[in-house]
Each structure stands twice: as structure tokens, then as C-alpha cells.
Design a protein around this nucleic acid. Structure first.
Lengths: 256, 256
DNA sequence: GTATGTTATCTGTTATAACAAATTTTCTGA
DNA sequence: TCAGAAAATTTGTTATAACAGATAACATAC
């Protein structure tokens, strides 16, 4: 498993065949070790592959429209095809990958309509969750959110967009998790996964003028003031701004 | 694969061990046939098992909290554990099954909070979809919906609650599909699957006074009148009535 | 050079065997 | 009769082999 930076993103994609067969006994040994390690923490290999692949997808490690194969993923993760296939199937079930007619796994292409739909779903769902979360948001949450914004500003100051995006995600889900709605949370997490490649596509551009920071501060202020409507309004505005930016970007680069 | 009626529902659940081993060669032969058959229509065995199991779950074939095992499902469907496990994992990814700490598959228990959450998610999502669908709803759709209601009344007249519930589902999704939002549709289908066992739990009770028919007619009238707000209002009212009934029922029978 | 047919490789799918952990059953001792 | 230990069974997990279909590479014929 070798990770490499590509276009400023951490990517693990080099399927160099030269390192594919480094002695079977050595490989089996390593697999067994990983297996034990995974079992130690109660995680199956399939879950581990899924988690890694998910992180890679959010991180923008793969190109939209790119094809993924069971065996290459298995080689990459140093497991057998079985858990690799399991991870791919789970991502297909979530909509993060597409399973085509000819039985190939592929990253969805990014069309403007897809971005539009994603936000049309997220906005009402997140608003519902925010309303449910509101009574549970106390001093501890507010402090955490403020720290989060401080961290984001610091990250932006040093052009660390990866950390900034991660903190952006943490901010949103800190609120959503407070709603204590497990089904909604699962859906929203899968929607974040679907949005991942898009966000990554134009995040520096979005973050550069720090409009997101401003919206975050508005949301914090609304929570402190006990104003649900203001929170929902700031939330809607932020998402709509992001959606507009992404859709515009996709429309410019839409070759279909 | 033997189906049997239980509590008025079609169930395939008898795992009588006596019919488990009807001669290996005979079984292999049948599996190969099924395999060829599945490939003919471009469907994998895993997809077939998934589709059947999904239908069974919606139909109320399993009790909430009931445990499912890979091998018993495999025996039941006359396939190997691999596609059976694939189907179970896919249902876990959708939230229709729970995967517990001790690595067992189990149907979620029905608590009032779960029903409440399900409707809190469905209502804003379906309203969004209905608004998106509205411009596409023409004469053909209206006629289809009217036919649907006629069929539902006829089904209720002969106490055919299974058909009535199926037509209820068709009515809802006829509108939702018109929105042409693939991601939203996928989510709403999985939510319908999650709601399946609940609906089935108290459907006759809900259908008996035909309040659903009344709401359906209101929705049709709203579409004919070109009144989006009226459509969404009728939709919200219908879902809220159903939610109230289900939650009340679950609270009465909640042993936790 | 282009088209066509053939071979080789790669693809996903599935059944199977082996393994460890959990569960159930059985046996044993009081 | 009951508690507890031991054996047997069942569980999910994973690697592997075999298979059919799809794709690619290559050679052959025009």
C-alpha cells in the first residue's frame, strides 16, 4: 500500500505490476497479520477496505468516470478479491459507485444535474436534522464549533485546504449528530460521500474568499441566540452558495 | 423454495432440515440451471436473492428482531453462501437489516422513535420530490392515479389488503418517479423498505376507514387544479396521519 | 493499411474449503 | 435436580479455484 501525492491530494493508486508479486509467502504472511490486526479491533477486512476506499473517494483520489476493478483493489489493499468485492458492492449500494450494464464498477461522472440534486436533497434533510438538534446544542457544542472555525482559519492561512475541508465536514456533522437521528445521519453521511468528489473539485476556489467562515459564524451566532430560524437560514444560504459555485464549475467543464 | 401463508402473509420461511439435502447432484444441477437463467436476464444470483429477500421484508415475512443467517438464507434460496451474504450486506448498507457487534444479521426492532424518524425524513424529501415532479405531471399521470384509486377501492371492498398496500406504494412512487431524481428515488425506495414492516404491522387498521383514499383523491385534485401547495399539503397530512397511527400502535406494544 | 478471425488476458461471479469465534448441546459431578 | 465443564455444532470471514463473458493483442488475409 503506497500512498503518493497527486495534484496536492494523497492518492494510493499506483498499481505498478512490478510490486504486485513480492513473493507469495511474504504476502500471505502480511495478509494474515493484517487479518489478525483487523480482528483485534473487531473489524472485518471488508470493512477496512471499505473505509480506506471511502476515504480515498472523498479525498478525490479517483477521477470521475474512472473504472475500478475487484482484483486491482484487492492487490492494492493486499487482500483477496472477496473483501474487495464486498467494499465495492457496499459503495454501489450507497450510490458512491455505479455498477454498469456490463458489470463494471465506475465512479459516477459529475454532471451539473447531479450536483443540483444532491443539494436539493441535502438542504431539506439537513434543515430537519438541525431543527431536531437545536434543543440539544449547549455550551459545549458552541465552544467546539468556535474552536473548529479557529482551526479552519488557521488552515486557510497556511493554504492547507485538506484540513480546512475536513474541518468543514466536522462542523456540519457536529450539528447533525446532535440530532440523534441514526437513519438520517446514515443518509447524510452517504450524501457527503457522494458530494466528496465535487467538493474536492472546487474547494480551494470556494474557500479562498472565506465565505464559508462567515456562514459558520452566522450559524454559531444563531445557536447562541437561540434562534432556530436564523440557523436554518444561514445553513440554507451556505449550501446554496456552495451549490451555485459547484454547478457553475461543472457547467463550464461539462463535455457530457 | 416453498412459500407458505402465515398470518395472512405469504412467507417463505420453513427451513425444514428434512428437505435440506435432496441429493447433491440434483441440487448442483438446479443451481447451475438457476445460474444460467439468471445470467440470461443479466441478473446475478446476489441480485436475485436481494430482490426476493427485499420483497419478503416488505411483505412482513420476518418478525422485527428476528435473526437471519447466511447459510439458512443460502439453503432457502438454493445458492451458495456467497450471494446470500452479498444480499444481506446490501440490506445492511440500506439500513433494512442490522449487523450487530457479534456479527449477526438481525431485523431492526420497531420502536416509536424509529417510526417517528422515518416519517420526519420522508416528509421533507417527498415534498421536495413532489415539487420537482409537478411540472411533469400530465393527463397520463392523472389517469393512472385515478385508475390506481379505483383499484385500491376494489381491493379494499374484497378485504385484499396486500393488493391495496401495493397500490398505495405504486401511487406514491408514480409521483416520485416523475421527479426524475435518481439519487432521491433511491433513498426514498430504501426508506419505503425500512417502513415496510411497520406499514404491514397496522395496514388493515389504517386502510379500514379509507382515509388514505380520501387523501389520494385530494392529491389528484390538487394536480388537476395545478396547485402545488395543495398537493404538498395533502401529502404532508396523509403521512402525518399514518405516522400518528403507527407510532400509537408501537407505543402500545413497546416492551423495549 | 485495413479488416477479420484467433488467441490470450482480464473481468465479475460463484461454490467451496478452512479457519476462528460464538453458540448450543451434551456430559459429568455434586 | 442443578451447575459447570467439555464437546459438538453453527456462525461469519476469507482465500482460492473454476467458470463464462468481455476485452485486448496479435497475427493473418485481402
Amino acid at each position: 500500500m503506497s500512498l503518493q501525492p497527486r495534484n496536492g491530494v494523497w492518492v494510493f493508486k499506483d498499481l505498478d505490476p512490478s510490486e504486485a508479486a513480492p513473493g507469495v509467502s511474504r504476502m500471505v504472511e502480511r495478509v494474515v497479520m493484517e487479518q489478525l490486526e483487523a480482528i483485534e479491533r473487531g473489524e472485518t477486512l471488508g470493512q477496512k477496505v471499505y473505509a480506506r476506499l471511502r476515504r480515498a473517494l472523498i479525498g478525490g483520489a479517483f477521477q470521475p468516470g474512472e473504472r475500478l476493478t475487484i482484483r486491482s483493489l484487492a492487490r492494492l489493499m493486499e487482500v483477496s478479491p472477496t473483501p474487495a468485492r464486498e467494499a465495492l458492492n457496499r459503495l454501489v449500494a450507497e450510490g458512491a459507485l455505479e455498477f454498469e450494464q456490463n458489470r463494471t464498477y465506475r465512479l459516477p461522472r459529475l454532471y451539473p444535474e447531479r450536483a443540483r440534486e444532491l443539494y436539493d436533497i441535502r438542504v431539506p434533510l439537513e434543515e430537519m436534522a438541525a431543527r431536531a438538534a437545536f434543543p440539544h446544542l449547549g455550551r459545549a457544542h458552541i465552544d467546539m464549533l468556535k474552536d473548529n472555525v479557529v482551526g479552519r482559519i488557521a488552515a486557510l492561512d497556511r493554504d492547507d485546504f485538506g484540513t480546512s475541508l475536513q474541518l468543514n465536514r466536522d462542523f456540519i456533522f457536529a450539528i447533525l449528530e446532535a440530532a440523534q437521528l441514526p437513519i438520517a445521519l446514515r443518509i447524510l453521511e452517504s450524501l457527503w460521500l457522494l458530494a466528496g468528489p465535487m467538493l474536492h473539485l472546487c474547494y480551494p476556489e470556494y474557500a479562498i474568499d472565506r465565505i464559508g467562515i462567515q456562514r459558520a459564524n452566522e450559524q454559531i451566532a444563531a445557536i447562541e441566540a437561540g434562534d432556530v430560524e436564523a440557523l436554518c437560514h444561514a445553513l440554507r444560504v451556505e449550501r446554496e452558495e456552495a451549490a451555485t459555485l459547484i454547478i457553475a464549475k461543472l457547467e463550464r467543464s461539462d463535455t457530457r
